[in-house]
Measured scan of single mutants.
Amino acid sequence: MEVVDPQQLGMFTEGELMSVGMDTFIHRIDSTEVIYQPRRKRAKLIGKYLMGDLLGEGSYGKVKEVLDSETLCRRAVKILKKKKLRRIPNGEANVKKEIQLLRRLRHKNVIQLVDVLYNEEKQKMYMVMEYCVCGMQEMLDSVPEKRFPVCQAHGYFCQLIDGLEYLHSQGIVHKDIKPGNLLLTTGGTLKISDLGVAEALHPFAADDTCRTSQGSPAFQPPEIANGLDTFSGFKVDIWSAGVTLYNITTGLYPFEGDNIYKLFENIGKGSYAIPGDCGPPLSDLLKGMLEYEPAKRFSIRQIRQHSWFRKKHPPAEAPVPIPPSPDTKDRWRSMTVVPYLEDLHGADEDEDLFDIEDDIIYTQDFTVPGQVPEEEASHNGQRRGLPKAVCMNGTEAAQLSTKSRAEGRAPNPARKACSASSKIRRLSACKQQ
C-alpha cells in the first residue's frame, strides 16, 4: 500500500481520502468484538498479612480480608486513616479506646483483636480482627420478611446475652447493641463488635452510672431520649438488646419516626405494640426488656430465667442462610486472597510482582521504634555504632529488605517449588510478632 504524507491529507475531501486508502487503516468495530484482558491483581503485604478484597466500608474506614502468612488464618483488617478520623467527632479517641478494650477481652461471643499495625509515614492504622463471614443486618436484609425464624432468632439472642453478660462482668457498657454490630462466623457463632462508643466503668465505681451516649437513635432507651444527665449503663444495653430481639423476630421496630426528633419523642413516651403472632412468652420477655422505668427493666439474670429464653424451640421454618457475597455473588464466600496468593505462588519472584506497604510497620504502639547501633568497621576489626531503624520486634528492616532482594536475584530452581506461605513470609520485609 502506498504511504501517504499526513501533511497532504488536509487537502483532500472525505471521498478523496477514502480513495487514497484511509479506509485501510481506520476501522470501526462493535464493542462486543473487544476482548478485555482482566487487570492483574497485584499482591500487597502489610507486615506478614497478605491483603485481599474489600469486605465493607463504614464511617471510620474500610475493612478488607487478609491472610496471615505465618498461621494461614483468615483475618479481617480495619484500615483507618488518621486524616479521616480527625474529621469525625471523637474519632481518634474512640478508636484508641476500642483498641484498649479489645486487647483485654477474651470471649467467644466478643470479636477478638489479633494485631494492631501502624504506618507512621502514611498515617494509617490497621486493626487486624478475627474473620466473620457476614453481619446479622446483612442476613436480615437478604430476606423479604426482614426477620429470622424463632428457632434461629433464639439461638442468636442467647449468644448475644452470653457476650453481653461477659462485657458487663468486665465493667464495660457497649451502648450500641444492634444487628449491624453483631457479626457471624461460618459456624454460626455470634460476635459482638464495634466497641468504639463503649465505656469502661471505673474499677471502684459504686454502680453503672453513665453520662454520655453515642449509640444508634432507634435503639436508645427513654432515659436517653428524654435527655437525662445520668442513667444506668447496663440497663441501656438491656433495652438495646430488647429492641434487637423485637427486630429479628418481627422484622419491625418498636419505635419509629420520620426524623430523629419524632423518633425520640415516640421513644420518650414509651408506647409501642407487640405483634400478636409473637406469642405470650416472647411478648412477656419483650415487655420486661423494654420496660420504661430502668429500675423495673429486666436484668440479665431475669432474662436467663425467663421461660422463652430457657425453652427449646424446634425449627418450624427453614433458617435464613448466609447470603452470597454482594460484589462477586459467591454463595460460598470464598477467600478473596486466592488470586493474590496464586500471583505470588505461580509467578517468578520479581520485585515488580508484589507490593510491600512499607519497609517498617510499627505494631502494638503509636510511637516510632527505637534505634540500635549499626556496626561500623574500624582499624582493629571492631565496629562502632551508628543508628539503624528496627521493627518493634527488633528485626532490622533494611537488612531483611536487602537480603530479600538478593535472594530474589539468585538463580535457584529449587526455590520455585516452595509453598505459597513460605514465599509470602520471604517477601515480607518486616516480620511481626
Rank of each mutant, 00 (worst) to 15 (best):
V3G: 12
Q7V: 11
Q7E: 09
T13K: 01
G15N: 15
L17M: 05
M18V: 02
V20A: 09
G21R: 08
T24G: 11
R28S: 14
I29H: 01
D30Y: 00
S31A: 12
S31T: 12
T32R: 10
Y36L: 06
P38G: 02
R39D: 08
R39K: 04
K41F: 07
R42S: 06
K44M: 03
I46C: 08
K48W: 04
Y49H: 07
L50H: 06
D53H: 09
G58V: 00
G58E: 06
S59R: 13
E65R: 04
E65H: 11
E65Q: 08
V66N: 02
V66H: 11
L67D: 03
T71S: 03
C73V: 13
R74L: 11
A76C: 10
L80W: 12
L80G: 02
R87L: 08
I88Y: 15
P89D: 01
P89R: 04
P89G: 01
E92A: 10
E92R: 15
N94R: 11
N94E: 04
N94A: 01
V95Q: 12
K96F: 04
K97W: 02
L101S: 11
L105V: 04
H107E: 04
H107V: 01
H107L: 01
K108S: 04
V110D: 02
I111G: 02
Q112G: 05
D115Y: 01
D115P: 02
V116G: 02
Y118L: 03
E120H: 15
E121R: 10
K122E: 05
V128S: 02
E130W: 00
Y131V: 04
Y131M: 00
C132K: 09
E138N: 01
D141A: 06
S142Y: 07
S142D: 13
S142F: 11
P144A: 07
E145Q: 09
R147D: 00
F148V: 03
V150G: 03
Q152C: 09
Q152E: 04
A153P: 00
A153Y: 00
Y156E: 07
Y156S: 04
Q159M: 07
I161C: 06
I161R: 00
D162I: 06
D162M: 15
Y166S: 05
L167H: 00
L167Y: 02
L167A: 03
Q170P: 01
Q170M: 13
V173A: 01
H174N: 01
K175N: 05
K178M: 01
P179E: 01
P179I: 04
N181A: 01
L184P: 01
G188C: 01
L190R: 01
V197A: 09
E199N: 13
A205C: 09
A205I: 12
T209L: 06
R211C: 09
T212M: 05
G215L: 06
S216R: 00
P217W: 15
P217S: 02
P217E: 02
P217G: 13
P217L: 01
A218D: 01
P221F: 00
P222D: 00
N226Q: 12
N226G: 09
N226L: 06
D229E: 06
D229T: 15
D229G: 06
F231A: 15
S232Y: 05
K235Q: 14
S240T: 06
S240Q: 04
A241G: 04
A241T: 00
V243M: 02
Y246H: 00
I248P: 00
G251S: 06
G251I: 02
G251V: 00
G251Y: 01
P254L: 02
F255D: 02
E256G: 08
I260W: 08
Y261C: 06
Y261W: 03
L263C: 07
F264L: 07
E265R: 11
N266K: 01
N266G: 02
N266P: 07
I267G: 03
I267R: 06
K269V: 09
K269P: 09
S271G: 05
S271Y: 00
C278E: 15
G279S: 09
P280S: 08
S283F: 03
D284W: 03
D284M: 08
L285S: 00
L285V: 01
L285A: 00
L286S: 00
L286P: 00
G288E: 12
Y292T: 15
E293S: 06
A295D: 08
R297V: 00
F298R: 02
F298I: 10
Q302E: 05
Q302W: 04
I303F: 02
Q305W: 05
H306Q: 02
H306L: 04
S307I: 06
R310L: 11
H313S: 08
H313P: 03
A316I: 10
A318T: 08
P319S: 11
V320C: 04
V320W: 03
P326R: 13
T328D: 13
D330A: 08
D330G: 09
R331C: 11
S334Y: 13
T336W: 15
P339I: 13
D343T: 13
G346T: 15
D348Q: 13
E349W: 07
D350L: 15
D350F: 01
D350Y: 12
D352L: 15
F354M: 13
D355A: 05
E357A: 07
I360W: 04
I361M: 07
Y362M: 15
Q364R: 07
V368I: 13
V368A: 11
G370Q: 14
Q371Y: 06
Q371G: 06
Q371W: 03
E374H: 06
E375L: 06
E376K: 11
A377E: 00
A377Q: 14
S378D: 13
N380R: 14
N380C: 14
N380P: 14
Q382R: 12
Q382T: 09
Q382H: 07
Q382C: 07
R383N: 12
R383A: 12
G385D: 10
P387C: 13
P387M: 12
P387I: 13
V390L: 08
M392F: 08
M392C: 10
G394L: 14
A398D: 08
S401T: 05
K403M: 00
R405I: 14
A406R: 14
R409I: 09
P411W: 03
N412L: 15
A414V: 12
A414F: 11
R415Y: 12
C418S: 13
S419F: 12
S422I: 10
K423S: 14
I424Y: 07
I424R: 13
L427H: 11
A429S: 09
C430V: 06
